[in-house]
């Protein structure tokens, strides 16, 4: 299972890494500080290398979650087709929840905190 975690909060990323370690499944996770850095990686990849799951934050420097979504859509459909995106954010603003609904690639909008239960739900579905 290939997972991208795009978030600028180092503590959060540390917590998520710990939780992945506790899981029975093998999760190979890559962590990015913002959308730009993740995009730089994806743009050069073959479709088969694309992650199964992207856990995306909204508020980030350089390229925020929404800008990442728009950039992600410009990638070849063959590559992005099987990638499921989850928004995991501290924002509980209605505006953000509604905006997430406009992207069919986004499976779910999950407000922090993240728990092992939630993480199992995300990984277990695949």
């Amino acid at each position: 299972m290939k997972v991208f975690v795009i978030d600028d909060d180092p503590v959060y990323k540390l917590i998520v890494q710990r939780m992945f370690n506790e899981m029975s499944e093998t999760v190979s996770a890559r962590f990015f500080n913002d959308g730009r850095k993740a995009m730089d990686v994806l743009e050069g990849w073959e479709p088969v290398a694309f992650p199964d799951i992207i856990m995306l934050d909204i508020e980030m420097p350089e390229m925020d979650g929404w800008a990442f979504m728009d950039a992600f859509r410009t990638l070849p459909a063959a590559a992005t087709a099987h990638t499921k995106i989850y928004i995991i954010t501290s924002s509980i603003a209605n505006e953000d929840v509604q905006k997430a609904g406009q992207y069919p690639e986004i499976i779910k909008y999950i407000p922090k905190p993240i728990t092992q239960e939630i993480l199992k739900g995300i990984i277990g579905r695949h």
């Binding site: 909060d9 503590v11 959060y12 917590i15 710990r18 939780m19 508020e59 501290s90 924002s91 509980i92 603003a93 407000p111 922090k112 905190p113 993240i114 728990t115 092992q116």
Partner: peptide, 21 residues
């Protein structure tokens, strides 16, 4: 208020997650 809530939430979320761990 949005920022306040966001900032506080990001920390409190981490605290909750850490407690669980």
């Amino acid at each position: 208020s949005y920022i306040v809530s966001h900032n506080l939430r990001s920390h409190s979320s981490n605290i909750l997650s850490l407690c669980e761990l």
